[in-house]
Design a protein around this nucleic acid. Structure first.
Lengths: 262, 262
DNA sequence: GAGTGGTCTAGACCACTCC
DNA sequence: GAGTGGTCTAGACCACTCC
């Protein structure tokens, strides 16, 4: 059996256009895309939390009244986008930033020698402020909306290498304080995910070369005028909503920015 | 019907381990991976050339004596790796660098304002030489092996922005001269693909910040000491074979290096 | 042994292109 | 209408994990 029962079974989903009179629907979307959207909603709403097991393919197929193959195709795409991780024999898990695996997905600065490891953070400043115009624009806020501002220096093996400033929407990151940041070990995205229910899933980065100013030079213990990489990064959560602006200066004396083109 | 006939039909491929005595094979590889390897061989050998149509899924399924679904899965992966491009209703085509689409896959320098377009090249030097130790190591050649060396400046709207040096294995790029390069319009990878049968399919890039030396400053018409992005890129063809080393200096006065993290 | 994701098949029908 | 890739189903069996 196929189409007849399929249309019956998927009555609550948008049925494929071909079986209806009047030709192709202008908003045609395959079943598996609709299933993917439903699963994404459950991820976004926190019904299945980072690190947790989601229902099995068979279970989801039953729930959505589609074949296992259709659920598979939906999950395949979610896995390709790093929203979930499949583990054969175990199940499919919601991705989390609390994993060694995830730590270097957004940090592309690699040591010239030795094995990559996560830097230590020292927070210079943490405060709430009103969003300047450029920050507001990139975070899709109104100029003057509340934002959390963070400035920190990151060091590898005690050598200060990154100085960065972050802006976060004040509404989402209400209780974020210097204390919380200092207590927390590991990548900030882990904290954001666990404590503020906001998972970064994608980022856009623009990189330039600049010379260190006096203030940056001091923080990085370098001579003023030393060339640095300057990164401006906007990170997005579900629904392509921007939720972080980060401006970083990277010393590339002992590190390089690594990128794989394919 | 399934397994019995499948094993018969795929007698010339490595059959799945489960139906044999003695438990799982240590070198188990799924059928679709074997099909993928066979298709990749045909791409590599030039049996199907860049821009050409490859045989249909039904045709390949018949040829390899597997189901269309298995061929689909193989081609899905090749499409994800940008080796082929699927076009619904038309067929599957071998990817080519002679396409607007491909031009910005390896060039990540984007204008701060205006629409991206491909730069004009001015060749400063083209010569054959012996590979220095570091070049030989990155290209997996022996120190002293013949390489082609190219130095050029690239300009956007008449403004010199990139100065780069390239090294190519001499054996592969035998007839590559300044004349050929000057005649040719468009990305060098198009020339390499058409004239030398070598397609770049992947690259590894390492980026640092440096200050312009006198020579670079002159070529880019900048003050000495201006901060520049320095990129070292190794490009690979089929079989992860390195076939190009490129060292570039990018002015980021009017451009930025763009990267999407996901 | 039971449960998970992973592979493979056969077959139907759809969307799209070209004629 | 014929041919292409795209979607969807049902069902079998495999690889792997946990018990």
């Amino acid at each position: 059996m196929n189409n007849a029962s399929s249309n019956l079974n998927t009555a609550n989903l948008q049925s494929a256009s071909g079986s209806q009179a009047g030709g192709p629907s202008p908003t045609f979307s395959p079943l598996y895309q609709q299933i993917k959207a439903l699963i994404t909603q459950s991820l976004q709403s926190g019904e299945w939390k980072p690190g947790e097991l989601i229902p099995s393919e068979v279970e989801l197929a039953g729930r959505f009244k589609v074949s296992q193959g259709t659920v598979r195709k939906a999950i395949d795409e979610l896995a390709a986008e790093n929203l979930v991780v499949r583990k054969q024999g175990k199940g499919t898990f919601v991705s989390t930033h609390h994993e060694a695996r995830a730590h270097f997905r957004f940090l592309r600065l690699m040591p010239d020698e030795g094995v990559p490891h996560y830097p230590e953070s020292k927070f210079i400043e943490v405060k709430r402020m009103r969003a300047p115009a450029d920050v507001a624009r990139l975070l899709e806020l109104k100029s003057g909306d509340a934002v959390v501002f963070i400035k920190r220096v990151q060091s590898f093996d005690g050598i200060p290498t990154i100085v960065e400033e972050l802006w976060l929407p004040g509404l989402i990151f209400k209780g974020l304080t210097a204390e919380r940041l200092n207590e927390y070990k590991g990548p900030m995205y882990g904290l954001f995910e666990s404590e503020f229910g906001t998972r970064m899933i994608r980022a856009q980065e623009k990189i330039r070369a600049v010379c260190a100013g006096d203030s940056e030079a001091e923080l990085l213990q370098l001579a003023a005028g030393t060339p640095l990489l300057m990164s401006e990064r906007v990170s997005f959560t579900y629904g392509d909503k921007p939720v972080e602006l980060r401006r970083g200066l990277y010393s590339t004396a002992r590190h390089h920015y690594q990128n794989d083109l394919s």
